[in-house]
Design a protein around this nucleic acid. Sequence first.
DNA 1: CTGAAAGCGCTTACAG
DNA 2: CTGAAAGCGCTTACAG
Lengths: 344, 344
Amino acid sequence: MARTGQRHATLRAIAQSAGVDVSTVSRVLNGSPEDAQRAASRQTAEEIRQWAARLNYRPNPHAASLRTRRSNLIGVLVPRLSDLVLATVYEGIEDAAARHGMTTFVMNSRDQAAEQRERTELALSRRVDGLIFGDAHIDGAFLDDIAGQQVPFVLVNRRAGDHPAVTCDDYEGGRLVAEHFLELGHTRVGVIAGEPFASTGIDRTTGFLDRYREAGVDVPASRVVHSHFDAAGGRAAADRLLRSRARPTAIFAVNDFAAIGALGALRDQGLRPGHDVAIAGYNDTPLAAELPIPLTSVRSPMHEMGARALELLLRVLAGEPAASERLTPALVVRASSENAPAAT
Amino acid sequence: MARTGQRHATLRAIAQSAGVDVSTVSRVLNGSPEDAQRAASRQTAEEIRQWAARLNYRPNPHAASLRTRRSNLIGVLVPRLSDLVLATVYEGIEDAAARHGMTTFVMNSRDQAAEQRERTELALSRRVDGLIFGDAHIDGAFLDDIAGQQVPFVLVNRRAGDHPAVTCDDYEGGRLVAEHFLELGHTRVGVIAGEPFASTGIDRTTGFLDRYREAGVDVPASRVVHSHFDAAGGRAAADRLLRSRARPTAIFAVNDFAAIGALGALRDQGLRPGHDVAIAGYNDTPLAAELPIPLTSVRSPMHEMGARALELLLRVLAGEPAASERLTPALVVRASSENAPAAT
DNA sequence: CTGAAAGCGCTTACAG
DNA sequence: CTGAAAGCGCTTACAG
């Protein structure tokens, strides 16, 4: 065993060096400021802190967790970490967690119910204080279940039922795209709607369709097609939309990667994005602006969503009121949606 | 405090139910198979296991870690988790870790020396058994330092010095691209070389240049430009390459995202990838095949690299011999590099 | 095959 | 302001 030896000193070592009891050292080093105050004179406290620095003291989190029954550990579930959207959300979670002295770990559920259960069970066996789910399904049976077991958790990116959630205002984001397409004069439009179980796709689609309905345009169901949230899924969905006889002149993909797939599908049919067919995506991923044909997209505050979800969970853990939050999206118009409908 | 109460039984509860000592329960439930064998009769063992199942026993990892001084925790450092390459490598690490009953957590270092130190220190204070670095810098001063402190670690994706590492054979990958360009007849070529401190960029570039040299073509230094590993970086680098009077007819970007940026730069100049200028990337990310102009790229086994790195670290922790591994890349030719040099 | 005991490094109620 | 003690849930050398 390549062991690393005694890298960190213990409270006891410091107590012996400073000639005080370990309980005093504990209160000075790891207690609340008030605890530290009343635990030792300024002089003693200072001496303890110096010994701690000299001996490279770091509290042993396993010992503390065992004693306090608080692990300062948060489990995070996402569909796939290699999805940039979730990776960015997780970065937000992790940054906020670090600020609050919490540790997080993340696992993929691949949007599979069995994996969600299994990973949650695993997190619980690791004694997490709480969980953040980035993979909620709109039906929410699983979540109701574990809420019933008093497991503290919040949702991020996707909402479900009345569980506390931090999301983008996806409904509003969908409306923004509709507004934009309407201004350009498009009335024959299509939607690449994402997974039917994800609130993101559902709300973005609903917002879009509602805004069109308000403008007096009913988008037929045949022009709303579900898809995976990736380029291959977007390509397949776009192929279906473009094959219909009355081809849409504008397509809203509820995800940037799906939009990139749609761009490819257009090209295969000899159609030019932003000329023959307008395309808009969602999330404004860093790639959107850098594509050969820059992609119109709805900016969503992915990093901030993650950070706020972590802070919402902290409130849940503290027993404070924890209301869901909906962050504001913003439309970013680029070359992929510059065209009015062709004069066909 | 929204506490979750007693979710899991303890050894003691099981011992009382089964009418045996907790040490026996421990050996049966958590010991090695041999331990379990000699710790109790088949009958007693069976009874203990039934009680464990009935009471939903899960060993408390904090208690076990405190006692054994082994946390089964691995810290992982990456430049950015929102970089798809690293996210995929991490998925490989995490999958392998789960198979071995280890927990991992991941942190961004943003390729900054100060953050590398700080995050490593944080991981150590969490009492990880070892570390995996996906953010090694070729100079390796920091790594030499912590190797000197006997911290067990391995590298993944990027190599440095003689530290055990699991990488793609990047040199060979660079050669594959050169071979391909040479077959098409390109002699005026450019390289978007990535960060100067990353072995990935260095080795891919060196392999490419060496193969050209062997073919009797010396690529001038002015046609090798460094870049960030993202689309914006690739676009900036491509702009520089295309501005020179003797424009390259083929460009190798050592990263798919940089290649996508280069695609955009070409288009801005009215050049068609795969017609006027050939483009190749690296990693064969899922997007490459789905782009409007599908991208030629070198496939690297990102997920497998991660899994193997975890297993290499396990060997290091066990004190077994741990040799570096270089996984084999493969060229995937697509439309972005179909052209011979223009007859200018 | 089984048990009793010690101890990992903390925290915290109690006492002074 | 400071200390002594108990105990969180495990593992493991020792003894029988």
